[in-house]
Design a protein around this nucleic acid. Structure first.
Lengths: 335, 335
DNA sequence: CTTTCTATTGACAACGCTGAAGTGCGTGCC
DNA sequence: GGCACGCACTTCAGCGTTGTCAATAGAAAG
């Protein structure tokens, strides 16, 4: 009736509970024969570990916290899903935490609200070197995306390569006046690896970014800010024949603004996003975007986590994945 | 250095650990004065309960599992977010589980994979009376959306009212040949409360559903099936002046198919969705949809959960919320 | 001035598991 | 033959919390 415990398994296998525990944890202490017997006993009584007991005794919780700022942005939802499923493949359960502001993000990474997890994978929105303030967490933390701080294991996408690829793509197809819809930054101007990729590609054509063609949405990467920024750019009277958005959601907002403004995509203006979220495939017209190689990123993040849980020491590592262009109709050649 | 325990609080407050526990759980056993003292001690040592200890001792985990089939569909991601945040408001932590198939959904509801939760809120994709097979779970389970089985507490949206409202809206604005893009059903024909709403509204105009104007996507409510179903309908040569989709994602897929087919929305054909997901606001043209009153649904679900956790007994309840039309350009009057 | 309550608090033994520290017993070595 | 050693396992105590039941004190009752 009651859920079976280690002791029940032990009784059946004719060994001590501790031995059962050792076998379950994969410790190479027991003989082959004993291991065999234990596993059979486990199966026969239908044993499943009691995580509370294990956690209390110091054996860890077997749980990884996945921390995102929200789930309504496809970028976060889709990556959270990929991470959770990948962790499950490795036998790790996960618990998702939504940290909508800087304080809760920090809390989630450094303990408080995720005390019941052995490790944390965070898709940060606020974290930066300043926020961390030199603190190092007391358990494995992997940062997924965003700028490395040097304090956490981090997986970064090929932001620079990816963005220079879209930029080149637009230049190659004859666009010359490239506008940017960015998210707000401290400095008030676009910055970061993606922007570097942009400059890099322009330079190859002997061009430079034009400040008059840059629009920043709010700090939050999302559709409405993209819409507003684009609307503002249109109202400014600036002339451009392509718009590069910092990500897909912003592009979806921008697309609508272009439509409202009577601008045809791609005939009058080409439009591109970044991230390869599902929504990009079904916009009208479908959105050209950059794939950050989701599989590779998730794989790298999970692998780093598993290694650290396995006791691997050493300074924070940074793994970089590639990025490739996904050309679609939104950046098609004008008729 | 170490995380403070009940004993530490007890020492400061000059009472036994058990009394501290009682105060923390809100038991009305201790005197006012003692309660006061305990709370101050808690604050002064910065105590936070150790959930593993509590769970082991039988005090519950204070955790609610939110179960969804996936996170890449906005409907699930957005509602999971709302639920998680609403639970947090009530002081309940949550753990999100992805159950992509019938077996894991069942497992999640009946224990196995969510043994570490005091209760479960499930946004089902597979659950039906048959799958449950008369089983009653041994802890509070609230079903969010989908068809009630009579076995679980359930929150349902105003599906019938909502769908009859969109239907009437289309009829009121002069549309007469209404097509349906549905998800696959056992019977192969559209069914369910939404369909009833459709029939009901048609009947008011002396009309009947036309089988030639019905298209079913795959079982999965998602964009690609919507695209395929719509493409098929267009290829069939059927003539229609409006398309009602079972939900927003399907509508997004259908919109693209219409566009590819050279059909103008809303000039040639009006298009509608259901669910009021974020994506509906930013399609081109923006999508007319039905809001299931998210706040009310989430509120009802959380409230039922809290009541059950509080020990409320009785047979499964069903709470129904309303639904209202959100008219947008996709169902505008043709010029 | 006992006796019986009532209100408040405490002692104790779990809960299921794991780290640390053994216990035997057979081997290999000089 | 004596001794150290390694192997295969076990014993023990305790992780932080809670339910059960006992204990204490003071008040009310007789």
């Amino acid at each position: 009736m009651k859920r079976p415990t280690l002791a029940d398994v032990a009784a059946v296998a004719q060994v001590s509970p501790k031995t059962v525990s050792n076998v379950l944890r994969g410790r190479p202490l027991a003989s082959k024969a004993t291991q065999e017997r234990v596993w059979q006993a486990v199966a026969s009584v239908g044993y499943r570990v009691n995580r509370a007991g294990r956690a209390l005794a110091g054996g860890g919780t077997g749980r990884i916290a996945v921390v995102v700022p929200n789930l309504h942005q496809p970028y976060y939802a889709e990556n959270a899903e990929r991470l959770i499923l990948a962790l499950a493949d490795r036998g790790l359960t996960s618990t998702l935490r939504i940290a909508p502001d800087a304080a809760s993000e920090r809390e989630a990474v450094f303990g408080g609200t995720t005390a019941d997890a052995d490790g944390v994978i965070v898709l940060p929105h606020f974290i930066n070197t300043e926020v961390l303030g030199g603190m190092a967490p007391d358990r494995p933390v992997v940062q997924f995306g965003s700028r490395p701080t040097g304090l956490l294991d981090t997986v970064v996408m090929g932001e620079r390569e990816g963005f220079s690829a879209v930029t080149r793509h637009l230049l190659d197809t004859g666009r010359r006046r490239l506008a940017l819809v960015w998210n707000a930054t401290q400095s008030g101007r676009p910055e970061g690896r993606r922007f570097e990729g942009f400059e890099e590609a322009l330079a190859e054509y002997g061009l430079e970014p034009d400040p008059a063609l840059m629009a920043a949405g709010s700090d939050w990467d999302w559709r409405a800010p993209g819409f507003e920024a684009m609307t503002g750019l249109l109202a400014s009277g600036a002339r451009f024949d392509a718009v590069l958005c910092i990500n897909d959601s912003v592009a979806v907002g921008a697309l609508r603004a272009l439509r409202v403004g009577g601008v045809r995509v791609p005939d009058d203006v080409a439009l591109t996003g970044f991230d390869d979220t599902d929504e990009a495939e079904f916009t009208v017209p479908p959105l050209t975007t950059v794939s950050p190689e989701h599989e590779a990123m998730v794989d790298a993040a999970v692998r780093m986590m598993v290694d650290r849980l396995g006791g691997e020491a050493g300074p924070p590592r940074v793994r970089q994945t590639g990025a490739h262009l996904i050309p679609r109709a939104s950046s098609g050649v004008p008729r």
